[in-house]
Structure formats: structure tokens, C-alpha cells
């Protein structure tokens, strides 16, 4: 079990613990303690957050969360972001990264250009997007109008709010994904492309057989990070819909649900139960991802 064989002496172990102690203390205070308290809170039927006193031990809070129609919306939306918006974002980023890397002039300029969203405030951009999505004055509907498509009440219609949120989320992620993928693309040795050209591969084939496999560790990294991030979407909801969570609560995400339940309603134990559910969900997905990715990813 010990990493450095033969150093597994009692003295060595004590020394290792001493070295780890500062990190362990910090982790205990800021990670384990809150985690345990959240678990604990979630197991009460009612809970006085200010005094850390609860009554009625059991799974009642979980039942409440799981039966709450707002939580159902939140789960649906979160899954949509994770399984549709996040992959779409990576695919678009990939296309952009490939395009940028294939141009010779102004590459640095475009690189900076695409990175700008990353350093811009989510909330500020949210205000801009609210106008873009506006049913009467929005640019998006203006463009749809050019193709004779009826204006969409993106933010007013409970059926379209999730698409608005997804578009905004995709846009917000492009910068980071594109930069990381661009670095990945630029790190692929040029000789593979030369070899593939000599081997007579067309560009489509080069992308699918050379570029993508070479990028697979980067893509899997972005997928894991993206998955976890998409499970924690909150800012975007707030930026587009304010603290109401969209028409008829239609833009709720799981974290937004937790936030609203915690600070808005002050029902901390319910929020904690939702947080525990989220924690378990992320844990499971991450484990599955790790197992699956081992099969498909080429690590150098």
C-alpha cells in the first residue's frame, strides 16, 4: 500500500502525518466539518440552524425534496445542462479551437478575443443577454425574424427559459473550453499531421483519427470539469432571471433550488438534504466517468 516501498517505518509515518497536518486541519475545517454538518442537518424533520438543534430524526427532508415539483424542474434542467448544453459547448469550442489553430495570421488576436468572456463578469454579461433574449427588443429575435421565424419569448415562456439558460451557459463556457482545447491542439506534434498527409488522410480523417484521439485527455478533462460545473450552475440563473428563478420557477437548477431554500426560505435542513442528494449524484457521476474514460482515452 505504501507508495515508497521500504520507507514505511513508524518514524516515516509519523513524519508524513506531521507534514500533512496543516492541510488536514484546513480540509477538516472547511470541507469535512461543513460536509458532516450538512449530512446531519439533512437528517432532521425540522432544524434550528442558528442553534444547531434539530427534531425528528429520519429521511423526512429527503422525502420533501424528492416530492417537490420545483426540485423536479431543477433536476430536469440540470440534466439538460449536463447532457446537452455541456457537450454542445465542448463541440462548439472544439470547432472554434480547430479553426483558430488553422489560421496563421491574427491567431493571437482571435485567441484573446475568444478568451474575453472568461474574464467578464457573469452578472454583467447576464444583463446583456437579458436584452439579447428580449422578446420585443432582443437581437436574437431580430435575427430569427430575418428568417421569418416568429419571435420567441425566451425569458417569459416557461418552456423556453431552459433553452435561454442553456444558450447563455454554452456561451459562458466557450472561452475556457476553447482556450484549453486550443492549447491541446497546439501541443499535438506537427509530425503526426505530416505523417497523416503522407499517408493520404483527408482533413476529416485527420481530425477524427489524429486530432481527436490526441485531444482525448483534454476533452475528458473538460467533460469531467464541465459535468461538475454544470451540476453547480447557479450564477447563470441568477444573472438571467434574478432571484425568482424564471417564469413559474422554470429555470431552477439544483444549486439554485438549494440557494433559494437556504437563504430565501430559511429552511436549512431541506436545503441540506438537496445538497446531499447533489453531492451523491456528483460523486456517482464522477466515479462512472473515471471508469468509462479509462477505456476511451489515450494518455501519453
Amino acid at each position: 500500500m505504501s507508495i515508497i516501498e521500504g520507507r514505511n517505518t513508524a518514524r516515516g509515518t509519523v513524519a508524513a502525518w506531521v507534514y500533512l497536518l496543516p492541510a488536514l486541519i484546513i480540509i477538516s475545517v472547511f470541507v469535512f466539518y461543513p460536509l458532516i454538518m450538512a449530512f446531519r442537518m439533512s437528517m432532521y424533520e425540522s432544524y434550528n440552524f442558528y442553534k444547531n438543534v434539530g427534531t425528528g430524526f429520519g429521511f423526512a427532508s429527503f422525502k420533501r425534496v424528492l416530492c417537490d415539483s420545483d426540485f423536479h424542474i431543477a433536476v430536469k434542467n440540470t440534466l439538460f445542462l449536463s447532457f446537452v448544453a455541456m457537450p454542445v459547448s465542448i463541440i462548439i469550442s472544439l470547432v472554434i479551437a480547430l479553426l483558430i489553430s488553422s489560421i496563421k495570421k491574427f491567431q493571437a488576436l482571435f485567441q484573446t478575443f475568444f478568451f474575453l468572456p472568461y474574464v467578464t463578469s457573469v452578472i454583467a454579461v447576464g444583463i446583456v443577454f437579458r436584452w439579447l433574449f428580449h422578446s420585443n427588443y432582443g437581437l436574437i429575435n431580430y435575427f430569427l425574424g430575418l428568417f421569418h421565424i416568429h419571435p420567441v419569448a425566451w425569458l417569459n415562456n416557461p418552456k423556453t427559459t431552459i433553452y435561454a439558460l442553456a444558450i447563455y451557459y454554452i456561451w459562458g463556457n466557450l472561452a475556457f473550453n476553447t482556450i484549453i482545447l486550443l492549447v491541446g491542439v497546439q501541443n499535438i506534434p506537427k509530425m503526426y499531421y505530416n505523417a497523416a498527409r503522407v499517408d493520404g488522410a483527408k482533413w476529416g480523417k485527420i481530425i477524427f483519427r489524429i486530432t481527436l484521439p490526441q485531444l482525448s485527455p483534454t476533452i475528458i478533462f473538460l467533460t469531467i470539469v464541465g459535468f461538475i460545473a454544470s451540476f453547480k450552475v447557479y450564477n447563470e440563473v441568477y444573472a438571467l432571471f434574478g432571484d425568482l428563478g424564471g417564469a413559474a420557477n422554470s429555470a431552477y437548477t439544483i444549486v439554485f433550488y438549494i440557494y433559494r431554500t437556504f437563504y430565501g426560505a430559511g429552511r436549512m435542513h431541506i436545503a441540506a438534504a438537496a445538497a446531499v442528494i447533489l453531492f451523491v449524484a456528483i460523486l456517482c457521476i464522477t466515479i462512472i466517468q473515471m471508469l468509462v474514460s479509462k477505456k476511451f482515452v489515450h494518455y501519453k
Binding site: 446531519r40 432532521y44 434550528n48 442553534k51 444547531n52 438543534v53 434539530g54 427534531t55 430524526f57
Partner: peptide
């Protein structure tokens, strides 16, 4: 936690 209950 449960022991604390009476306090409430």
C-alpha cells in the same frame, strides 16, 4: 444533536 433537543 439529539441530546441538545430539550434545550430548545
Amino acid at each position: 444533536g439529539q441530546q441538545e433537543e430539550p434545550k430548545k
